[in-house]
Amino acid sequence: MLWVVGLVFAGTTQASSIENLARSLAKIRGEVEALQTELDLEKEKHASRITALSSQLADLSVEERRQKTAIEKLEQSLKQLSEVSRQAEQSGEQLKPVVLKVLAIYKQYVLSGFPFKIADRIKAIETLEDNITNQHVDPNKAVNQTWALIEDEIRLSKENGLYQQTISLDGEKVLADVAKLGTVFLFFQTRDNRTGMARQSESGEWRFEITKSSGDAERIARLFDSLKKQIRQGYFELPNPLRK
């Protein structure tokens, strides 16, 4: 009788162990499936990020080519101005219309281009135009001044830095700190802690937009902090104003 009871007990114990093992395997299987699902999601996120970065890189390449073309046009104007200056020798009457034509081209470039201190840049052009028109400056000297203005514009496209300028934000004029990266990126911070960037619409019009993402605001803040510390090279993760 005792032997039979022992067999029954042993069988019950074995069955219990098998059930526990089965439950453990089921739990492990569930964890593996969960990890596989998480891995698949991470792969999808990674693939999406690579696609997004590739798209941004393409945008930047297009913008770089556009800026390069604009600079080449300005450089061509400089060459034209230099050639005419040599041919005209001391003839102010021959120089005057050519210089004014180059200044008109330059002025249109500024008005329709990158929104960095446009008022100041236009004022410098118009002051020189007035001086030439009213004969307040010698034509040969005007050539040198025009040359200097356009060289400043070319240098502007290659420099990064912190500046202050008045921007139009939500219909009002606001004095802001701006971080200029060449003539492609322009980020801003206002005194009331609003941050954002200059963005060009499909029609070509530039406007200043407040960033809606706290992450983007932090990235812009880090850029300003680095530039204030004179760190002008390195890796910066920034919101992309070229993205539509």
Rank of each mutant, 00 (worst) to 15 (best):
L100G: 00
S226F: 02
A176D: 04
P97V: 03
E83W: 14
S48Y: 07
K158C: 04
E209V: 10
I132C: 04
L227F: 09
L128C: 03
E33S: 07
I154D: 01
D170V: 07
A176Y: 01
E218W: 03
F224N: 02
S55E: 11
V184E: 05
W3M: 11
T133N: 10
F188M: 07
K123R: 11
F114S: 03
I125N: 02
A142T: 00
G215H: 06
L78H: 04
Q108G: 13
A26I: 06
K45A: 11
N131Y: 04
V4A: 11
E83N: 10
K27P: 00
D130V: 15
E31Q: 15
S168N: 15
S203A: 14
R49D: 03
F224S: 01
E64T: 14
V110D: 00
I132K: 03
K96Y: 03
L186Q: 02
T190V: 12
L162G: 01
K212A: 14
I132E: 04
N160C: 10
I50R: 12
T166L: 01
S213M: 07
Q87T: 13
L242P: 02
E42C: 12
K107M: 14
L103H: 05
Q67K: 11
T12Q: 10
K212F: 13
L7V: 10
F114Q: 04
Q233F: 09
L35T: 10
G171T: 09
K158Q: 09
R66K: 10
Q87M: 14
K244R: 07
S168Y: 08
K96F: 02
G30T: 09
L39V: 15
A58T: 08
V137K: 02
L21F: 12
E63Y: 09
A198W: 04
T183S: 12
D225A: 09
T127S: 09
I71S: 08
A217I: 05
A34L: 12
V137A: 05
I18Y: 14
V184L: 13
G182E: 02
I50Y: 06
V184Q: 10
I118A: 05
